[in-house]
């Protein structure tokens, strides 16, 4: 009867997510889900699968493309394997800090780049952040000389290995879950990440000095299956777009709270925070940033617009 029909009408939006429920991105997704369910009178139900139970981010993207899943949060390195221009969004020392990236996202600096994945059957519908990354090891890192001979774990990508080498250390790609034991066993001397990951993985137990190098701002994108989006009626689609864009602000705010929370835990754990000479590191990485910015007209445009934002900030606007 009526109830069955109602049930049939409910469409489940399955969301793959690789972090725990406490992560800012989860909070934003859950908030989006609640609002979207309400706005569509229960025609949609959002179901989030946290902790990467459905697979790592690369494979999850394939599931988005086939339509096994409808939504996922993935780092920009994922669309980068489809279009190399995406590297510019997460290029070393492109931004001075997290706020600059957030301004760029609000101003739609990446929008034209985002549309380039449509032909692979997934759309980028929003942008989240997992923060600025900094170096942690067994001593303060103020200048590039401090990193001499230091093996620091980086994400598995040539750009990041090169970045760490330019910063004065040796970049070692390794799975996140292996870092703790590797530092403990002196395979590597440290890692680089946000305060939140540094806290979650208990890396401060083996690397008690956290130096603010600000070398990267990590951006994640929310991707959606295209067929799923195309089947929505125009009004629903409008609501979807509006709410998923709004969730970006929710995420940015939740991330700030995550950072504050992590910092207070880390302080209690006796972590030493160090201000680094970011200018010295930035100068060393400049050729790398330039080579990424020069990849195409699209990357150049993104680069130029970020430089405009920087100039505006410096002029105090």
């Amino acid at each position: 009867g009526v109830i069955n029909e109602e049930e049939e009408k409910t469409q489940i939006i399955r969301v793959a997510f690789n972090q725990p429920e406490t992560h800012a991105e989860y909070i934003a997704l859950a908030d989006f889900g609640e609002k979207f369910e309400k706005a569509t009178d229960g025609r949609y139900e959002v179901q989030i699968y946290p902790n990467a139970v459905l697979g790592d981010q690369g494979p999850v993207t394939e599931m988005i493309r086939t339509g096994a899943l409808q939504l996922a949060v993935v780092p920009v390195s994922v669309p980068e394997s489809y279009n190399e221009d995406f590297a510019i969004i997460a290029a070393p020392y492109l931004y001075d800090d997290l706020e600059q990236m957030e301004t760029a996202a609000r101003e739609g600096v990446f929008d034209s780049l985002f549309t380039t994945t449509d032909k692979f059957n997934f759309e980028i519908v929003s942008l989240y952040t997992s923060g600025a990354r900094h170096i942690y090891t067994d001593k303060p890192v103020v200048t590039p000389e401090d990193l001499k001979g230091y093996k620091i774990r980086v994400q598995d990508s040539e750009v990041y290995i090169q970045m760490m080498n330019m910063m004065g250390g040796v970049g070692i790609p390794m799975a996140q879950s292996e870092v703790y034991a590797a530092v403990q066993q002196h395979v590597i001397e440290g890692g680089e990440n946000s305060e939140v990951v540094y806290d979650n993985f208990k890396h401060y137990e083996v690397s008690p000095y956290f130096s603010y190098t600000n070398h990267l701002v990590m951006t994640d994108v929310v991707i959606a299956n295209r067929d799923f989006l195309d089947k929505m009626d125009p009004e629903t689609r409008r609501i979807f777009d509006e709410l998923i864009k709004e969730s970006m602000e929710v995420e940015f705010a939740a991330w700030d709270e995550n950072i504050e929370h992590a910092k207070s835990t880390l302080e209690k754990q006796g972590v030493t925070f160090v201000e680094s000479d970011t200018e010295a590191f930035r100068d060393r990485c400049a050729p790398l940033l330039e080579s990424i910015a020069g990849r195409s007209d699209m990357t150049r445009e993104v680069y130029d617009r970020i430089m405009e934002i920087k100039a505006r900030e410096e002029n105090g606007e």
Binding site: R65, T66, S77, Y82, E84, F120, D156, S157, E158
Partner: peptide, 14 residues
């Protein structure tokens, strides 16, 4: 073969 065809457009990062 369907996953193979799909993956012809994505490059391994290393």
């Amino acid at each position: 073969s369907s996953i193979t065809a799909m993956q012809m457009v994505s490059l391994d990062s290393s």
